[in-house]
Structures are given as structure tokens and as C-alpha cells.
């Protein structure tokens, strides 16, 4: 079956004062209809550059190589005039801070109506606004529609942003840290809403998050990014229960629920490499306590661990020493 989204050998390079930054370095991935794929990794790992190239939101100065196919259509070379059709109808995006997206002086009704009209000038906008607000499970539709953004709570605002994003029934939703600014109870509600929408509308979701608990709740599959590359990809269960890449181990170990030591959390030593002149071998090697000599010279290929699980680490090579992952699960006790 043709995947909804296919990224092939994507490379993104930005210009900076100190030289070209290789933000995305040869990333390939596929996303099926109705599937939730989470991208996790630290700031600067390339998550945003990757999603921005999928949405064609990169500045013109960014050099993009490779292919991004949505329903088999080449996104990277699509003429500008077709992009409006692409953004909104084919794919849509929500961000961390709804207040940055919403217009502070327009009512919710006007802002949703604008999105509706943009994609379907013939639509009964009043009717559609109410439908969309009900879709995102807002109880008092009339009151919400008449409100200005600042009159709503953080959770309500994120629902409104979601209603706008869903106005043209996108097949792909890109959610960039959608619940980071919300507290836990509201976060749980928004995550459940995203899950139910994605199931009801058979919408694929690309979830960007640094919060592994959010990822655990929502994602079918997880891609772990480091220094512009995917270092491990698998189903959520594979990544959380049988992680294979030392960087994934490090991410999990630094959480209070996973740390073997009750006193001290595991803190990954060192800092991410600059992507201006990335190292020859595995970029994670200098911070990796399990690094092998070859890690400093040669980039590890993807080793296939199952139909769905791949990890780019030389530890999976037949000649490598066997290492027991340093994870002790204590969560949920």
C-alpha cells in the first residue's frame, strides 16, 4: 500500500554566520494513513527542520535535497500556487503555544470561519464552525464561538487551534509539542482528544515531542532523532521496552521512573555536536559510554531488529560486544 507520507533521503542545510548547518542528514521515513508517528530528540536534533520541509515552510535560503512524497505527489518541487491546497487540506499543523497562532482581536467564530471559507467558499460557514467546535469536544459551542482567545483557558485555546487545523479535513496533522504549555489534567484531555480524532477521521499524525510520556500515550511508532539523523525507529512498545540505541537508552534513563539510582538521575554527559562540520562517524559517539572504536570513524548503518524496528548503532553488529541496556524500569510502581 502506498504510504500517506514518504520521506526519502532528506537533507536540509541552512546557512549560518559560521558556515552551513546540516540540520537534517539523510532521513527516510514512512507514515501510513491513520498512524501516529512521534519524533523525539533534543533541541537541535532536526525535528523541526524535518517537519518544516514536509510543510514546505523552510526559508528559501535552506538547501533541501531528497524527496518528500504525500500520496505519491512530490511536495518539495510543487509550485507555490499549489501550496495553499497542500497546507490545510492535505496537511495541517498545530503548535505549542496557541496564543501565537490565534488572532487576539478576532472572535473564535471569525477565525474558524476564515479557515473554512479559505478551503471551501461555498460552505455554510456558521454550520461548519459549530460542527468543528463540537468535533473538538467543546461543550458550550455558542459561548466559545463568541469569545476572544484571551477569554479562554489554555486547553480551550488548543482545542480552537485544533478546530482551525481540522477545517479542511487534512489527512496529515503535524502536532509540534501540542501539550507542552498545558498542565497534566488538561494535557490528558487534549491527548485523548487527539487520539479519538485521529481514529475517527483516520488522520495520520506526526507528533513532535520531547516528553516521552506524551509519546507513550499517543504514538503507534516512534522515531528517535539525534544530530539530524534518525538513530532508532520502531513501534512504541519496541522503543520503550526493547530500546537498542545508546541514545534512546540515555533519553529513557534520564526520566525519574527509569533511573536505576533513586538518588541521582542519569544525565547524559557532553553537549550535542555542532552540525556545521559534523564528525565523520556516529555523531553520538563522544557522549556514548558504549562507543566502539569504529563509531568514531564510520557512520553505523541501520540494523534491522524486526519488521518494524531499526537502530543505527554498531552495537548491533555481529562482531560487537553484547551489552545489557542500562535500564531499570521503576515507573508505575
Amino acid at each position: 500500500m502506498q504510504p500517506l507520507l514518504e520521506v526519502k533521503n532528506l537533507k536540509v542545510t541552512y546557512d549560518s554566520a559560521s558556515g552551513p548547518v546540516q540540520a537534517v542528514r539523510d532521513v527516510s521515513l514512512q507514515l501510513q494513513r491513520g498512524e501516529v508517528l512521534a519524533l523525539v530528540g533534543e533541541s537541535g536534533s532536526g525535528k523541526s527542520a524535518l517537519t518544516k520541509s514536509v510543510m514546505r515552510l523552510l526559508p528559501p535560503s535552506a538547501a533541501v535535497e531528497g524527496e518528500v512524497l504525500l500520496n505519491g505527489t512530490d511536495v518539495l518541487h510543487m509550485p507555490e500556487r499549489h501550496l495553499r491546497e497542500l497546507r490545510g487540506k492535505a496537511m495541517s499543523m498545530i503548535f505549542q503555544d496557541p496564543l501565537e497562532v490565534l488572532n487576539p482581536v478576532l472572535t473564535v467564530r471569525r477565525q474558524i470561519a476564515e479557515a473554512v471559507r479559505l478551503h471551501d467558499p461555498q460552505a455554510d460557514t456558521e454550520q461548519r464552525v459549530r460542527e468543528l467546535l463540537r468535533l473538538v469536544e467543546i461543550a458550550d459551542v455558542e459561548r466559545c464561538a463568541a469569545s476572544l482567545p484571551h477569554q479562554l483557558s489554555g486547553g480551550m485555546r488548543q482545542r480552537v487551534v485544533l478546530a482551525i487545523a481540522l477545517a479542511a479535513q487534512p489527512q496529515l496533522l503535524i502536532a509540534d509539542e501540542p501539550t507542552t504549555s498545558l498542565d497534566v489534567t488538561v494535557q490528558a484531555q487534549i491527548l485523548d482528544l487527539l487520539k479519538s480524532l485521529q481514529e475517527r477521521l483516520n488522520m495520520a499524525t506526526l507528533l513532535i515531542s520531547h516528553d516521552l510520556s506524551v509519546v507513550a500515550r499517543l504514538a503507534d511508532r516512534v522515531a528517535v532523532m539525534y544530530a539530524g539523523k534518525i538513530v532508532e525507529i520502531g513501534t512504541a512498545e519496541e522503543i520503550f521496552y526493547q530500546p537498542a540505541h545508546p541514545y534512546t537508552w540515555a533519553l529513557l534513563r534520564s526520566l525519574p521512573g527509569f533511573s536505576a539510582d533513586e538518588e541521582e538521575l542519569y544525565a547524559l554527559p557532553g553537549i550535542p555536536p555542532t552540525l556545521i562540520d559534523p564528525p565523520a562517524g556516529d555523531a553520538f559517539a563522544p557522549r556514548n559510554e558504549y562507543a566502539l572504536a569504529i563509531d568514531y570513524e564510520q557512520m553505523p548503518p541501520f540494523f534491522r531488529l524486526s519488521e518494524t524496528h531499526f537502530a543505527a548503532t554498531w552495537l548491533q553488529d555481529a562482531r560487537a560486544p553484547r551489552i545489557t541496556p542500562p535500564l531499570q524500569r521503576r515507573c508505575g510502581e
Binding site: S213, V214, C331
Partner: peptide, 14 residues
């Protein structure tokens, strides 16, 4: 509040 506390564990979370 505690019931809403997310856990980094997909089976429990789901």
C-alpha cells in the same frame, strides 16, 4: 491530578 500523571510506558498509558 495523580490519575492524570503521564507515564513513559505505552502499555500503561494506553
Amino acid at each position: 491530578l495523580l490519575s492524570a500523571m503521564p507515564l513513559p510506558d505505552p502499555r500503561q498509558e494506553k
